[in-house]
């Protein structure tokens, strides 16, 4: 089914994505006043084949800038200042910022996106079938008839009636539209999918179905997924590993179960402890302070003004992201964080 399955086994063990020392800043120049917003600041991570990697973080933490930079979908004023993003598709390395022509060809065929607002993806005045044509037709090198057949069988697998192709977006429910955006992103059977808050706008009752669908598609195609959401319960349900982003930096990363049971960064510990659950009435503490302003981030560890464990070194020196146990963490007091 996939090219990747036919390649020699050693290429399959190589990570599909390697991000090294990535820095992407918004650089603005208004009337001679320079402003710099460090949205992605020194991020290094790898993602293996067939893995679902969850990125958690609050709004304006830079998580959207991070995935845009990974996907090579950035525009000024956001610029890559340093670092590299390398994909490994079918045994060939693709450097996102060194080879724009090949990157363009790889889009949608190898690398696709599931976007948040399904209404913004689908053109409201055109039938759904046109969206598939626009997005996928030229990547699939099939004739019109074969392409149509492929669409129908793909929609059936995803649990959608092929008749939706003839409808307009407003005639479909929110859940169906989100399924369509998933169908759009997976029709070329890409090796890598970036999903940006795919369930946030959905009703609670539909959310689980959409998550199960994403998991099912991922399992069948063996794709890797970066799954971005601020909802930790969604990460608990679907992610293999979680990376926590705070103020443009990766502060903790590890296998989902370990992160939930033994968070090593105080921010992660707070995020998990503040989750309310039915049947538990203990008072939850809210984190004091406000998210940092990325154009003037706090010195040292960016979390220190809100951190209950902050000591002197936190105010002056930025902790490096170091391996600890099964994951990595950037905290001077990582060993002393208690799971609440």
């Amino acid at each position: 089914m996939l090219d990747a399955l036919a390649t020699p086994s050693e290429t399959r063990t190589r990570p599909i994505l390697e991000v090294k020392g990535l820095k992407a800043y918004y650089q603005m120049n208004y009337f001679g006043v320079q402003r710099e917003v460090r949205a992605v600041d020194d991020v290094t991570m790898t993602i293996s084949r067939g893995e679902i990697y969850g990125i958690a973080g609050e709004s304006s933490s830079g998580k959207s800038s991070l995935i845009k930079t990974i996907a090579g979908a950035i525009r000024p004023p956001l610029r890559v200042v340093e670092g590299s993003v390398k994909f490994d598709f079918g045994g060939k390395t693709l450097d996102v910022y060194a080879d724009p022509a090949r990157m363009k060809a790889a889009r949608w065929q190898h690398l696709s996106y599931i976007m948040q607002g399904s209404m913004n993806v689908l053109n409201p005045v055109r039938k759904v079938k046109h969206a598939f044509h626009d997005f996928a037709y030229k990547h699939m090198s099939l004739g019109e008839g074969d392409f149509r057949q492929r669409l129908v069988s793909h929609l059936e697998r995803i649990g959608l009636d092929p008749r939706v192709l003839e409808s307009y977006p407003h005639q479909l429910s929110g859940g169906m539209r989100q399924r369509l955006t998933i169908a759009l992103a997976t029709v070329c059977e890409p090796e890598f999918i970036i999903a940006d808050e795919p369930t946030t706008a959905l009703d609670v009752l539909v959310q689980q179905d959409v998550l199960a669908l994403i998991k099912d598609v991922q399992r069948r195609m063996g794709s890797s997924i970066i799954f971005v959401t601020h909802d930790m319960t969604v990460h608990a349900a679907i992610a293999d590993r979680i990376g926590i982003v705070y103020a443009g930096r990766l502060v903790e990363e590890g296998p989902t179960l370990d992160v939930f049971q033994q968070p090593q960064h105080p921010y992660t510990a707070h995020l998990i402890a503040s989750l309310p659950r039915i049947g538990d009435l203990r008072k939850r503490k809210a984190l004091p302070g406000k998210p940092p302003n990325l154009s003037e981030p706090p010195s040292g560890c960016r979390f220190h003004p809100r951190c209950p464990l902050a000591i002197d070194i936190c105010k002056t020196e930025n902790p490096p992201l170091e391996t600890r146990g099964t994951g990595r963490v950037a905290c001077w007091r990582a060993g002393e964080v208690e799971a609440a």
């Binding site: 609670v204 009752l205 959310q207 689980q208 998991k215 319960t233 608990a236 349900a237 659950r277």
Partner: peptide, 15 residues
Amino acid sequence: NAVLPPDPIAARAII
């Protein structure tokens, strides 16, 4: 039942 529990083992079982 649509509420996902904040616990990877239970949430995974639901999916």
